[in-house]
Simulated assay, not measured.
Amino acid sequence: MLEEVVATRYVTPLREGGSLPGIVEADDLGTYVMKFTGAGQGRKTLVAEVVCGLLGRRLGLRVPELVRIQLDPVIGLGEPDQEVQELLKASGGLNLGMDFLPGSLGFDPLAFEVGAAEAGRVVWFDALVNNVDRSWRNPNMLVWHGELWLIDHGATMIWQHNWRGAQAAAAKPYDASDHVLASFGPDLAAAAAELAPRVTEDLLTEVVAEVPEEWLVDEPGFESTAALRRAYVEVLLERAAVISDRITVGERTPDTPSQAPEWLSARLHRKAVK
């Protein structure tokens, strides 16, 4: 199970994120980027963070360590920003934290070279989880100690917002033309040969089991959280078997409207205008 810590101090909001994550200190003396259950995107984004973050780590990709964070809203009483206060009040209880990488820089493809092998692994992984939020417009990657780190997986597994269409989503192609690493000649064949056999039913079951129970309850169309966990496993397992042949990398399309869901499009727009 993910380690659980208790937030002891709210440090500062990260306003470049549409969900307004914040930096917090915890009782284990660690510092974390905290994502809140009370944020507008809801608990499903936290489910995606857990499943994709842990899956990425199991596949050897660099993703910051995840923890469960208990939050007492009282720590926000001294926060002068009304928006932050309301978010903290709405997020009492269990939330999600990612290890804060001090001194890290946002990835810039013009300043940091990525090899074809590593680019291929990242693109293949993003295709597996259908990540629509790692484009050249919004890389969601950091460079820390000279290495590439993947962050912010809340906009993955879009099918979880419409389970009736999940089976069809498992076979949906992935257009990587706008992926931030597309220009580095990702070696997708090598990535598929390395990673696809590792995405097993046992691995997915272990990863999905880490999602907190309270983030899965009362999902329409499912009799139990066990059935819902199984649905996540089935879609990802089927997708892992076919996605390698369904990734395309063409010319990027700067003027094409976003294909992201409405809530994510609004978030990306807020980032762009800042």
Rank of each mutant, 00 (worst) to 15 (best):
E3Y: 00
E4A: 12
E4T: 15
V6L: 10
V6M: 08
V6S: 12
A7S: 09
T8I: 04
T12M: 10
P13W: 03
P13H: 03
P13T: 03
L14R: 01
L14D: 01
L14C: 02
L14F: 02
G17L: 09
G17A: 11
G18Q: 08
G18Y: 10
G18D: 08
I23W: 01
V24G: 02
E25L: 02
L29Y: 05
F36R: 06
T37F: 01
G38E: 02
G40M: 06
G40E: 09
V47N: 03
V51C: 13
L54G: 00
L54M: 10
G56N: 02
R58D: 11
L59H: 06
R62F: 04
P64K: 09
E65L: 11
L66Q: 11
V67N: 12
Q70G: 07
D72W: 01
V74N: 11
I75A: 14
G76P: 11
L77T: 12
G78L: 13
G78M: 10
E79L: 07
E83Y: 06
Q85M: 12
E86Y: 01
L88Q: 07
K89P: 00
K89A: 15
S91A: 06
G92I: 02
N95G: 05
L96S: 10
M98D: 00
G103E: 05
S104M: 03
L105I: 00
G106N: 09
P109D: 04
L110G: 14
G115F: 10
G115E: 11
A116Q: 12
A116L: 01
A119E: 03
G120V: 06
G120N: 13
G120H: 09
G120R: 10
V122W: 03
V123M: 12
F125V: 01
A127C: 02
A127K: 02
A127E: 00
V129E: 03
N130D: 14
N131C: 12
R137F: 12
P139R: 03
N140V: 01
W144A: 14
W144T: 04
G146Q: 03
I151K: 08
D152W: 06
H153R: 05
G154Q: 12
A155R: 04
T156Y: 01
M157P: 05
M157Y: 03
Q160V: 10
Q160A: 11
N162K: 12
W163A: 13
R164I: 07
G165W: 09
A168S: 14
A170M: 09
K172N: 13
D175W: 04
A176S: 09
H179T: 04
F184Q: 05
P186K: 02
D187Q: 05
D187W: 03
L188Y: 10
A191N: 10
A191H: 11
A193N: 11
A193W: 07
A196W: 06
V199K: 11
D202R: 14
D202I: 07
T205C: 10
V208I: 07
L216E: 09
D218N: 07
D218H: 04
D218I: 00
E219W: 00
E219K: 00
F222M: 12
A227Q: 14
L228I: 02
R230S: 15
L237N: 13
E238L: 15
A240D: 07
I243D: 06
D245K: 14
R252L: 14
R252G: 14
R252E: 15
P254G: 13
D255G: 13
A260P: 06
L264Y: 09
S265I: 05
R267V: 14
L268D: 10
L268T: 04
R270H: 08
R270P: 00
K271C: 08
A272K: 13
K274Q: 15
